[in-house]
């Protein structure tokens, strides 16, 4: 009887063992994870740079007819990015910019996902800026700051704090979305799992393992963001 249970357990464990241990396969996951992490990190950085720039432009030119074309450019960018599938954007940006086949895959991924993320971050930050009381801008200006100084020292710190949960959410979404990076020949975590599955004649188990990696990553990140938010909340007591 006992042997029967034991064989059931080994039947369950063996595929995971095969998909993880032999030929240092765990290293493939870890390498893939490292690629995913780097792409996500640089993409969110690029996304925040693009997002802040666009948000500030949109808020600034909102009532100035002279620079309306700037706002139009921003709106077109946001509309296209938010209105088309991510995977298509990846393929288009990749083939448009990175035609040389030996380009750094991290750079490729980060730029593609960064451009995509920028559109969402822009709208989040714009909301954050608009949530800051208009008296703050007036107070800054009345002290002699010019518009951009007031934005930088007074408005943005408050806006960022207000939207931090949303930005954190965007980062989590981004990390998971990088799983489609395989279509532009980036060997990220998902790609690593698929490759192992192909070698091992067992597609499903490596995917479970990859999913577990993503889950742990996202849980850890959620925890980290929570701590960070609490830090920033000083002054709210």
């Amino acid at each position: 009887m006992g042997g029967q249970y034991l064989s059931m357990v080994t039947d369950f464990i063996k595929p995971f063992y095969d998909a993880f241990i032999p030929e240092h396969r765990y290293m493939n996951y870890l390498k893939g994870l490292w690629v995913t992490l780097q792409i996500s990190f640089f993409a969110i950085l690029l996304g925040i740079v693009i997002g802040v720039t666009i948000a500030v432009i949109k808020v600034t030119v909102a009532d100035k007819k002279k620079f309306i074309w700037l706002k139009v450019i921003c709106d077109v960018y946001i509309t296209i990015i938010r209105g088309t599938p991510l995977m298509l954007q990846l393929l288009i940006i990749y083939n448009l910019i990175f035609t040389a086949r030996d380009t750094n895959e991290i750079l490729v991924g980060a730029v593609c996902f960064g451009i995509n993320s920028g559109a969402y971050v822009a709208e989040i930050i714009r909301g954050g800026i608009e949530s800051v009381d208009s008296g703050q801008m007036e107070a800054g200006r009345s002290l002699g700051f010019h518009y951009m100084q007031t934005m930088r020292y007074i408005i943005m710190p408050q806006a960022i704090k207000n939207v931090l949960p949303a930005i954190g959410n965007e980062l989590i979404v981004l990390i998971k979305e990088t799983a489609v990076a395989g279509v532009i020949a980036v060997s990220d975590l998902t790609m690593a799992a698929q490759n192992i599955g192909a070698v091992n004649y067992d597609i499903l188990t490596p995917l479970y393992i990859a999913a577990a990696f993503y889950l742990v990553l996202v849980l850890g990140l959620t925890r980290l963001l929570h701590i960070f938010e609490r830090r920033l909340a000083q002054g709210d007591r």
């Binding site: 009381d133 008296g135 703050q136 007036e138 107070a139 800054g140 200006r141 009345s142 002290l143 002699g144 700051f145 010019h146 007074i154 710190p157 408050q158 704090k161 002054g235 709210d236």
Partner: peptide, 21 residues
């Protein structure tokens, strides 16, 4: 901006900067 440095203003709703000490 230079002129405003010389013209201080106090608002009804104070407008202190909440993120600064």
């Amino acid at each position: 901006n230079k002129i405003r440095q010389k013209v201080g203003m106090v608002f009804q709703h104070f407008n202190l900067f909440p993120h600064l000490t």
